[in-house]
Computed example of a mutant assay.
Amino acid sequence: MTTDAPWLIAGLGNPGPWFRLTRHNAGFLTVDRLAERHGARFRRRGIGSVVAEIEVDGRPVLLAKPLWFTINQSGRPVAGLMRRYSVPVERLVVVQDDLDFAYGTGKLKRGGGPGGHNGVRSVGDVLGTRDFVRLRFGIGRPPKGQSVGDYVLKKFSDEELTAMPGVLERCADALETLVRLGLNRAQDALNVSA
Rank of each mutant, 00 (worst) to 15 (best):
A5Q: 11
P6Y: 14
W7C: 01
I9W: 11
I9F: 07
G11A: 05
G11C: 05
G11S: 04
G13H: 01
N14E: 06
P15H: 12
P15D: 12
G16P: 00
W18E: 15
F19E: 11
L21M: 12
T22V: 09
T22C: 06
R23K: 01
R23T: 06
H24F: 04
A26P: 03
A26G: 03
G27W: 01
L29V: 09
L29D: 05
L34C: 08
A35C: 03
R37A: 05
H38R: 07
R43W: 02
R43P: 13
R45T: 10
G46F: 00
I47P: 15
E55Q: 13
V56A: 03
V56H: 02
V56L: 01
G58W: 05
R59S: 14
V61E: 00
L63W: 01
F69W: 14
F69Y: 14
T70S: 09
N72C: 04
R76I: 12
A79T: 11
G80Q: 02
G80M: 01
L81N: 04
M82R: 08
R84Y: 14
S86W: 09
V87I: 10
P88G: 07
E90P: 07
E90L: 10
R91F: 02
L92M: 06
V95D: 05
V95F: 00
Q96H: 13
Q96K: 10
L99R: 01
L99V: 02
L99E: 09
D100G: 01
D100Q: 04
L108D: 04
L108A: 12
R110Y: 06
G111E: 12
G112A: 01
G112M: 05
G113R: 10
G113T: 09
G115Q: 01
H117M: 08
G119V: 02
R121A: 14
S122G: 00
S122N: 08
G124C: 04
T129Q: 06
F132Y: 10
F132D: 03
L135M: 08
R136I: 04
R136P: 03
R136D: 02
F137D: 11
I139P: 08
P142Y: 00
P142M: 02
P142N: 02
P143N: 11
K144P: 15
G145M: 03
S147A: 10
D150C: 06
Y151L: 06
Y151M: 05
Y151G: 10
K154M: 14
K154W: 14
F156D: 10
F156S: 06
D158P: 10
D158Q: 11
E159S: 07
E160W: 07
L161V: 07
A163L: 12
A163R: 11
V167W: 02
C171K: 03
A172I: 02
E176S: 01
T177V: 12
T177L: 11
T177D: 12
R180D: 04
L181T: 12
L181Y: 06
G182F: 14
R185Q: 13
A186P: 01
Q187K: 12
Q187Y: 08
S193Q: 14
A194P: 15
